[in-house]
């Protein structure tokens, strides 16, 4: 299955993927609206930095899906290898946040933290392809079969 990977030696730590991700999933008309009108756009990708080492991390869509197993309401499910979230079922217990070994499930600031959100490979927005991959200025983030 194609997944999003980051080539650590190419990641510059510019954090732009976070902003594009948040905008892409905000539903707002442009990136400025997404951030300037207090809409609390939440990125589902996070760039980890330590000195000269940077890499972007988002949901790995693990085969053993610990988050799905931990979810108390069945809001998280794995369909065709993509771990998806049903926000109507999520009660914001954050068990999945605690369980995710990569720290890739984030609290959705947009609705005051009542639910969590996570990368669904941009299948749940109008982009149709992972926006972090498309917008990465150094080709560090790739969407490929490995």
């Amino acid at each position: 299955m194609k997944r999003v990977y980051v080539n650590e030696e190419r990641c510059l730590g510019c954090h732009l993927c976070e902003y594009w991700c948040a905008y892409a999933n905000s539903g707002e008309k442009d990136i400025m609206t997404a951030f300037k009108l207090g809409k609390d756009a939440t990125p589902r990708i996070n760039v980890e930095d330590d000195g000269d080492v940077h890499f972007a991390v988002q949901c790995r869509h693990c085969d053993d899906t610990p988050c799905v197993k931990a979810c108390i309401t069945g809001a998280l499910s794995c369909n065709d290898g993509v771990v998806e979230i049903n926000r109507d079922k999520c009660v914001g217990c954050y068990t999945c946040v605690l369980t995710c070994p990569y720290g890739c499930i984030v609290i959705d600031k947009k609705n005051g933290g009542k639910t969590v959100t996570k990368c669904e490979l941009c299948t749940d927005n109008s982009n149709g392809e992972p926006v972090c991959v498309r917008e990465c200025i150094n080709g560090a983030i790739v969407f490929e079969e490995r």
Binding site: L12, C14, H15, L16, Y19, I31, M32, A34, F35
Partner: peptide, 14 residues
Amino acid sequence: TDRCIKCRACERQC
């Protein structure tokens, strides 16, 4: 400043 979203990419890349 109407456009700047304070993403700080300019800062990180300069």
